[in-house]
């Protein structure tokens, strides 16, 4: 009867040998020596460990090759990042520069809201290896280093949030002109005209027809990206005033959202952050519907007569002709 055990024992080495020799297509080869990433030499053991962590948490979407084409990726509404590009949306560095490790940590631990990028519970102790492995996918990291961090100035509006929101509304529509070609507007045309004239001295005489909707913009990721409608969409990078400040100040890498830091004074950036935050608070509330209704029902607006008519009408926007 012993003979019946024989096939089993015969199979064993065969089985183990064949089992061990399959490697996922496209995955980086085994690491043999240290790799310099972002100016730091990373040990091969750390990268191999990073590969394990990556495979456990990231692989279904971002894929073995880091190309954002994992098994589960197809059909995702916000496509998973192609990590080979070395372009990242959310980081506290000027848009287009490489993020700092703290930015990776924030994105991995807190996720990107409204996407399949959830807040993963990768243990703190394993995060660094994972981040270095993620960097390995992008050749940029072997020659460049992370950008200078954009440090948030202290919020100058503490205790004066209502004032901040009011100022932010003006900056959003009048100074930063967010609604000109990207974001939806949240003010009447007359208001926007007035804000713009007040803050820049320029007269906005023409509006795009779909002023109250966002406009999909080209991006470096090969897909069009729709800027969020703050009263309807979740903000990917988080919706605390700090998160919003960061997104405004640093910009969104690879997209049309530029870096505003040093373009506008910090007071105004914070004011916009508070304003956007106030819009986010409307989400799924009757007030959002009311605002929408008010904008839809605003009286037909036509630009005031050319400048010779009068130079100092800085009154309310609805002081139309």
């Amino acid at each position: 009867m012993k003979a019946r055990g024989v096939p089993v024992f015969l199979m064993l080495p065969l089985v183990l040998a064949t089992a061990a020799c399959r490697r996922p297509a496209g995955a980086p080869p085994p690491f043999t020596g240290p790799v310099t990433l972002g100016g730091r030499a990373i040990a091969p053991a750390a990268l191999e460990h990073g590969r394990e962590v990556y495979t456990h948490y990231c692989r279904p979407c971002h894929g073995d090759a880091g190309d954002g084409k994992g098994t589960s990726a197809a059909g995702l509404q916000t496509p998973p990042r192609d990590l080979r590009l070395g372009v990242y949306k959310f980081a506290a560095v000027p848009a287009g520069q490489l993020p700092r490790d703290a930015d990776f940590v924030r994105t991995i631990r807190h996720g990107l809201h409204g996407t399949a990028m959830l807040a993963w519970d990768v243990p703190e102790a394993e995060l660094d290896d994972l981040i270095q492995y993620i960097k390995y996918f992008a050749p940029r990291w072997r020659t460049e280093s992370a950008g200078e961090a954009i440090v948030a100035a202290p919020d100058p509006w503490g205790g004066r949030e209502a004032e901040a929101v009011e100022r932010g509304k003006r900056v959003y529509h009048g100074l930063a002109q967010c609604a000109v070609a990207c974001h939806p507007a949240y003010a009447t045309k007359a208001e926007i005209y007035a804000f713009s004239k007040e803050l820049t001295g320029m007269e906005v005489r023409q509006f795009r027809p779909d002023l109250y909707f966002a406009v999909a913009k080209d991006s470096d990721y090969g897909v069009k990206i729709l800027p969020p409608d703050f009263t309807f969409n979740e903000l990917r990078g988080g919706d605390t005033p700090e998160d919003i400040y960061r997104a405004i100040a640093a910009g969104i890498g690879g997209t049309a959202m530029p870096t505003w830091k040093n373009v506008l004074p910090d007071t105004d950036l914070w004011a916009m952050a508070h304003y956007v935050r106030s819009l986010v608070a409307l989400r799924d509330s009757p007030e959002a519907g009311a605002l929408e209704q008010r904008l839809r029902d605003q009286p037909a607006w036509s630009p005031p007569p050319p400048p010779d008519a009068g130079a100092d009408t800085d009154g309310a926007g609805d002081a139309g002709p």
Binding site: Y57, D121, P123, A125, E126
Partner: peptide, 22 residues
């Protein structure tokens, strides 16, 4: 998410002694 006492470091050293989802 709290590190395992006593044996945590031994068993899950890489994850800082806590049990990771994996």
């Amino acid at each position: 998410g709290v590190p395992v006492p006593v044996v945590g470091g031994l068993l899950f050293g890489r994850a800082g002694g806590l049990i990771s989802p994996a």
